[in-house]
Nucleic acid binder design. Structure first.
Lengths: 244, 244
DNA sequence: CGTAGCATTGATCGCTCTCAATTTTTGTGG
DNA sequence: CCACAAAAATTGAGAGCGATCAATGCTACG
């Protein structure tokens, strides 16, 4: 009997996997570890030999600048592959902290090497998904570089919403972000004070509503317009990948 | 006799390639095409079936927001692999324009598929380099989200400088950027007017100098400090890749 | 039930944008 | 090689968005 694999489940949403491939992916998740909210998983500049699959909870990656300000680089959700960015570096370029109580599955760099070597189709898929992430990162770049505070908040909420929906089919139009306004601000380059003003304003305009921490998207169309948001989860085309 | 391959040369800086691998990479560059400065190589939302290797010149990728402002996502140099970001999409998520007269080598998506399939080690290498690019993109995110105009200009100049040096050994401390101040601004989220003020200021402070379009880095240390810059080209560790 | 973290609101400040004018450089055709 | 036009760089003045500083309310958790 093979352990449930979050990661394989995530990948198979894009491409049906063979049993051998699923088994290989499941092996990456053989050592689940619980971490508490706020726990540091990886510190900048630490030597790294491990990667992770996130099974439960929320994890964020970030850097701290010399003046003490923080830029959150990415918020990870269950099924996400964490730390691939650091496959090429001996020292961590970013810190990892659990935003909520989480379960992570660490595995060795060398396990990834074997996977890439033995399963070229999975390697190709990972390569493509890595590129997809880069595209969504360019969306954020454009957001930070060229749009107003309100647009950034709208785009951020939409992005989180759609990413959560990929793995959680129960989400209709509301979701639990589980991030403080300060964390939102640190993700999109704003102060928590201004994030609050923007959220409030969007609430008054009937774009969103909040009830005990849950966001509800009331006017998706106008939100997409304000945030200049494009949903990249549509339009994906992986048909040309090697067949199993 | 095999055509010179820019791309293979770039990759072999990280990992010695076998003859078969080099030949496979060279095949991607069998159809060089000249494009003039300003030429549109790819337009947003166009259906895409091709990728490119840049052999000569400069190419940029960008998006235009509804209000007309432009965010430049990346500037490509010779040896770079262009459009990998679009491997998963049927329609281009970004535009590509030649910044100077260039030579590009288009090749079909399916040629990439075959490459990934037949040369797992190259696939693994591409996966890693794609992750390296993501890391450098996170550096830009932090720069845009959390640093001042002057810091962004300093970091941008350093980044361009170090990237050019990777393929051009003749570069000592000065280089030809070949970008207008407006293009610099569109890369780092500033107006051309303010880019100009920052450059001028840095010149007066003896950090850089300019003579007919060439930038010279006079005080690298202070520049790195001002821009919060970390050189990611050091510290790469690809030793654990499958051996040839 | 007390305390710490988070959300909310107000007042003020300053960095960067906008608008506009001028100079300098680059490119092109004669 | 020069004349002209177009593009790019430079400089100044003024405005606005989001930061900063500061105070208060709210909520969860031990």
């Amino acid at each position: 009997m093979v352990a449930e694999s979050c990661f394989a489940e995530q990948l198979s949403r894009h491409l049906p996997l063979t049993d051998a491939e699923q088994a290989a992916l499941a092996r990456l998740e053989e050592n689940p570890r619980k971490v508490k909210r706020g726990a540091v998983i990886q510190r900048v500049n630490d030597p790294i030999t491990e990667l992770f699959v996130l099974r439960e909870g929320r994890v964020m990656s970030f850097v701290i600048l010399p003046d003490g300000s923080r830029q959150i680089l990415r918020v990870y959700f269950p099924g996400d592959f964490i730390g691939s960015a650091s496959t090429i570096y001996t020292r961590a370029p970013e810190s990892l902290v659990a935003v909520s109580d989480s379960v992570i599955c660490p595995f060795d760099k060398h396990a990834l090497r074997r996977l890439l070597e033995e399963h070229p189709r999975v390697a190709a898929l990972l390569f493509l998904l890595s590129n997809a992430e880069r595209v969504s990162m360019t969306d954020r770049l454009a957001s930070l570089g060229r749009t107003s505070a309100k647009a950034r908040v709208a785009a951020f909420l939409l992005d989180m919403f759609h990413r959560l929906r990929v793995t959680d089919d129960s989400i209709e139009d509301s979701f639990d972000l589980k991030l403080t306004q300060e964390e939102i601000g640190d993700s999109i380059g704003l102060t928590s004070v201004h994030v609050n003003r923007m959220i409030r304003q969007m609430e008054q305009e009937g774009l969103i509503s909040r009830t005990n921490g849950r966001f509800r998207m009331l006017d998706m169309e106008r939100l997409e317009d304000i945030g200049h948001y494009t949903n990249r989860h549509r339009d994906m085309d992986l048909d040309w990948l090697p067949v199993g």
